[in-house]
Write a protein that binds this DNA or RNA. Structure first.
Lengths: 341, 341
DNA sequence: TTTTATACTGTAAGCGCTATCATAACAGCG
DNA sequence: CGCTGTTATGATAGCGCTTACAGTATAAAA
């Protein structure tokens, strides 16, 4: 590291102009003569000068940096959202910082202080299903943050969150998955994952129930198991469900909250010697990179995460205060089969 | 958003003290009377004041923010490294920003400008295997960056990179894997992935060859296929290798550069009806979350990515200029078997 | 009582930019 | 030739903090 940072003053004196002029060429303003511009650029290049974004932020009150908080990066689903958001931010001339979910955790000393202090130009928050009590605290943290910067949400956003957002219409998605399975002849369709307390009309549960109703199938509580979103949770959930039912009532198809849960279900089925898809069809969600490499390859829903992230950035920058719904499509692979007659 | 940002002056005048005193309680300096401290904190809390990290950075010439550049976040391997680094940074009072690999790309207008302008307190760079010509440019970009901030590297760092680093001693790792397989009776062991030009003594190739030598097995060029690090690359590579050999010379074991390549190999083997592990053992690397959920569960090397990330942050903050080697351990699962007699 | 150390607190000079306003130079016009 | 309008440039006031440095009490020492 060089001992002394070179500043706009160094460039100005080297080029024999004022700092205002250097600033003008730096920002690409029009009213600079071609001769001076060339001279200044030459000096900048020769001295290897990099204007300080800190000082610029100080003076212009805008940092050209956005933030995103994700529940967990280790789930590739969120990594995809981040990647999409980051690329879009880059295109628009912004950088993107990633913050862990704990940044919003009100149980820590000062939930949003760090984020607020950063003076970001905007923040994207991916919301997950959360236990309701915690939810309220997160909402409070979000409202707090909103005093300092615009906030856009991504995910299954409940109506109580009056924020601009890119939501996934999980209801219509689930409804379509149920239809897909009933068309394959399934009548005992389980749904694993999610949080019970949530009563968002966009929620998967609503779509699940609508789907069953469409096919004139009964809603059976034993087929609806709530759990968190990891593979272990999925395996445990399926285990609980199967234990609680006589084998002749076992579901012929399972819809999983996400691919991780689906992986857990497949592992648990394997452990019990239940063949997939012959005796149990499985549908996941998120279409993770490993879905095609499972045995059998997992049918999943591509939720266009990168696009979702990119769109959230656009909403943030443009300042549009609206909620959009992300698209999705079912990727059929070998984990679902027509039910045995 | 509130229209006016409240500043240290607002707090000072509200509390009836000078801004210097507010600054003192903000930074937890000792020489402030308990009464004043309490009064100031009360005002800060009531006005919901958040000191600007921008202004603080301007005045103190330190931003308490680190950066990390990753080849690609979608590979969970890097997501793990990031997570470990971020958590450690947080513990030490720093935030961590993530930058895409393209930030170092010299083919873009100004490779490291964005990073340099950010005035980060330090930067971690994860280096991947790279084609050599590009490598040199990256090295140049890194040296350039180093003028502005300390840089720590993570990965398989060639000796030509005289940077502090957390390296993975891939040679000893590969050697151990080969030993593991030869102890299972394997004599035809293939190794898939990596870049040919690289001649780092820590490199996997060296370990692979040493391992073979230890077991008095010949090095057979056909068993060494180079490819990039995705599942598709792995599948194509195995495909090429098998096509080029008579079935009686097919390897009985494959070591893959990483779990993605291993997944590709497993898929390709499946396509050809080659049973794993009966006719082909497979070893991966990185121990991705999905490794236990493959069929069969994939034997892989846990490279302690989170620890690696955390350690890199420690080196960065402490300023120690040394290279450390990350630990690893083999996680045995069902994708490897004793070779048929 | 005066001197001197001690504990607080205030004043003010930056940090490196942006952005406003003022100024200078020079053209075109009546 | 004086006037206005246009274009290029400079001077300078912040932006919201940190950090010497300079006080001003008050207590301890002489």
């Amino acid at each position: 590291m060089s001992s002394e940072n070179i500043t706009i003053y160094d460039i100005a004196s080297d080029a024999g102009v004022s700092i205002a002029t250097v600033s003008r060429v730096l920002r690409g303003e029009a009213n600079v003569s071609e001769a001076t511009r060339k001279k200044v650029l030459e000096v900048i290049d020769r001295r290897n000068y990099r204007p300080s974004s800190i000082a610029r932020g100080m003076a212009s009150k805008t940092t050209h940096s956005l933030g995103i908080v994700l529940p967990k990066l280790l789930n590739p689903h969120y990594a995809m959202i981040f990647t999409g958001a980051q690329e879009e931010a880059r295109k628009l001339g912004y950088t993107m910082s990633l913050f862990p979910w704990s940044s919003l955790d009100t149980r820590e000393y000062n939930p949003a202080a760090m984020l607020a202090e950063r003076r970001l130009d905007g923040l994207i928050v991916c919301v997950e299903y959360l236990p309701h009590d915690h939810d309220v605290q997160v909402l409070a943290a979000l409202r707090d943050l909103r005093q300092y910067m615009p906030v856009v949400l991504i995910g299954c956003v409940p109506p109580s969150y009056d924020f601009p957002a890119v939501t996934n219409n999980s209801a219509s998605m689930l409804q379509a998955i149920v239809r897909y399975l009933t068309e394959l002849g399934h009548e005992r369709i389980a749904f694993i994952g999610g949080v019970e307390e949530d009563n968002d009309p966009l929620r998967r549960d609503v779509g699940y129930e609508n789907g069953l109703r469409d096919a004139r199938l009964p809603y059976i509580a034993s087929y609806r198991i709530y759990c968190r979103g990891t593979a272990e949770d999925g395996a445990a959930a399926l285990n609980r469900m199967l234990d609680s039912l006589k084998p002749e009532y076992w579901p012929t198809a399972v819809i999983a909250l996400n691919d991780l849960v689906a992986m857990g279900c497949m592992a648990e089925a394997g452990r019990r010697g239940i063949a997939i898809p012959d005796r149990l069809s499985v549908v996941g969600c998120d279409n993770l990179f490993c879905a095609p490499y499972l045995t059998p390859p997992l049918t999943s829903v591509n939720t266009h995460q990168q696009q979702t992230g990119a769109r959230a950035v656009q909403l943030l920058i443009s300042g549009e205060d609206k909620q959009e719904t992300a698209g999705w499509d079912l990727v059929e692979r070998a984990s679902c089969a027509r039910v045995r007659p």
